[in-house]
Amino acid sequence: MTVDIPPLGLGCANLGNLYRPMTDEDAGAIVGAALDAGYTYFDTAPHYGVGLSEERLGRALAGRDRASYTLSTKVGRRLRDLAPGETEPACDFFDVPARARAWDLTRDGIRATLESSLERLGTDRVDIAFIHDPENHVQEVYDTGFAALAELKAEKMVGAIGFGMNFSDHLARFVTDLDVDVVMCASRWTMLERTAFDDLLPAAERRGTSVVVAGVYNTGLLADPRPGARYDYTAAPVELVSRAQRMAEVCARFDVPLKAAALRYPFAHPAVASVVVGASSPGSVRENAALARQDIPDGLWTALVEEGLLDRDLPLPSGP
C-alpha cells in the first residue's frame, strides 16, 4: 500500500552521538527546532547510539499529541546490557550507554526489539517499522523476520512495515517478493547515484510501495563538494568531487544552493514519498527546512542534463 508520510523527516542518528557526542540538552534542542520548523516525521533506530537516539527522541516528544507526528524505528538488532568488562564496537557512535547489539530476526527477537523501542520512545506504537540493514541476513528475513513484523502490524503495534538499507537491489527483491508497505533507501537515489532508479524504484512503482530516501547528500559530498569530503562514508574519489563541484556551479547560476537541489531531486520519481535528513545542530535543522522550501526553476535541471551531469534518461523534478 502507499503510505502517507510527511515529505521532510528528521533522521535521528545524530541524537545517538553519531561521529561526536552531544548533550541531552543539545539533542532536545534539535528536536525542538525541527518541531518549530514544521517537521512532523522523525526516524530513529536502536542501532543509533545503542538506544540513546530513541531515548532522547522519546523525551523530546513527550507530551506532544501523538497524532501530530509520524514516527519510524527499526528492528533486526536487539540490544542487551553489557556484561562487566565487555566492550562493544563504537560503530561511529560515541559516549553511549553500556549496551551491545545482537542480530535477531526471530519472531521473539523482532517482538522484543520493538517492545524495547516503544519503551525508550515512550509510546505504544510506531507508524513505521523497518527491518534494518538485513543484507547479510536475507534468509532470516524470509524465514521469520518479515512474518514477525507483519504480525505486529496486524496487532496495530506498527502502522506500516518494510525495510531500511543502502542496498537498492535487495530492497527491490523484497518489494517484489513480499507485501512491503514502505522502504527507506539510503544514498542510492541522489544527484550522484542512480542505482535505485534502475532496480528499486520501478519495482516500488509497480507494487505501490512508498519510498523514503535517506542520504541525499551521499554522506557529505553533495552538502560540501570539496576534496576530502565523504562519499558513502569514505573519502570521495577525485572524479566525483569534480562532478559535484560542477553541479554546484550550475546551481549557482540559478541562485540555488546545491544542497537545495539535492534535497529536491529524489522527488523526481513518483514512488518517492519523503526525504529524511539528519542534523547536528538546531541551525542545520532550520537550514534544511529552508532549503526544502527553496524555489527551483525547471531550467536548472535541464542545464544539469545539458552539461552531462545528469543522465538524459532520468526523470527531472518540476515545479517550485
Score class of each variant (00 low, 15 high):
192 L>F: 05
234 T>I: 13
210 S>V: 00
184 M>W: 03
210 S>H: 05
197 F>H: 15
223 A>Y: 04
244 A>P: 04
219 T>L: 01
201 L>P: 10
196 A>R: 03
207 R>L: 02
218 N>A: 05
195 T>I: 00
196 A>M: 07
231 Y>T: 07
193 E>Y: 04
215 G>I: 00
199 D>A: 15
239 E>H: 15
197 F>D: 13
216 V>I: 11
231 Y>Q: 08
198 D>Q: 11
226 R>Q: 14
202 P>M: 08
211 V>F: 06
213 V>S: 06
224 D>W: 12
182 V>H: 05
226 R>S: 10
182 V>A: 09
189 W>D: 07
191 M>I: 12
204 A>F: 08
206 R>E: 15
208 G>P: 09
191 M>E: 04
246 R>T: 01
234 T>E: 14
242 S>E: 15
200 L>Y: 05
200 L>P: 10
203 A>V: 10
204 A>E: 02
207 R>H: 11
223 A>W: 02
225 P>L: 08
203 A>D: 07
245 Q>I: 02
228 G>P: 03
209 T>F: 04
231 Y>I: 01
201 L>H: 14
230 R>M: 12
182 V>Q: 05
229 A>P: 10
242 S>Q: 15
181 D>K: 05
187 S>E: 15
221 L>S: 10
186 A>D: 10
204 A>N: 06
190 T>P: 05
197 F>P: 00
221 L>D: 11
214 A>L: 06
216 V>R: 05
206 R>F: 01
228 G>A: 10
212 V>M: 13
189 W>E: 02
217 Y>G: 05
190 T>V: 01
238 V>P: 05
217 Y>F: 15
185 C>L: 08
213 V>N: 04
187 S>K: 08
218 N>P: 06
239 E>L: 10
202 P>Q: 12
243 R>T: 13
212 V>C: 09
235 A>M: 10
191 M>L: 15
221 L>V: 11
203 A>S: 13
209 T>I: 01
225 P>K: 00
188 R>E: 14
205 E>K: 13
212 V>N: 03
206 R>I: 01
213 V>F: 06
195 T>D: 15
215 G>K: 12
211 V>P: 08
211 V>I: 12
208 G>E: 07
204 A>V: 05
214 A>T: 04
205 E>L: 14
199 D>K: 06
216 V>E: 04
220 G>S: 11
203 A>I: 04
223 A>E: 14
182 V>D: 03
208 G>T: 00
221 L>N: 10
189 W>C: 09
232 D>T: 02
231 Y>K: 04
196 A>D: 08
234 T>G: 12
227 P>V: 00
221 L>K: 01
233 Y>P: 09
244 A>T: 08
227 P>T: 08
219 T>Q: 13
213 V>M: 09
191 M>A: 14
182 V>Y: 05
193 E>W: 01
220 G>A: 09
225 P>C: 08
246 R>M: 11
184 M>C: 13
214 A>Q: 04
183 V>F: 07
207 R>V: 00
186 A>L: 03
202 P>R: 12
183 V>W: 06
195 T>G: 06
195 T>M: 03
215 G>S: 04
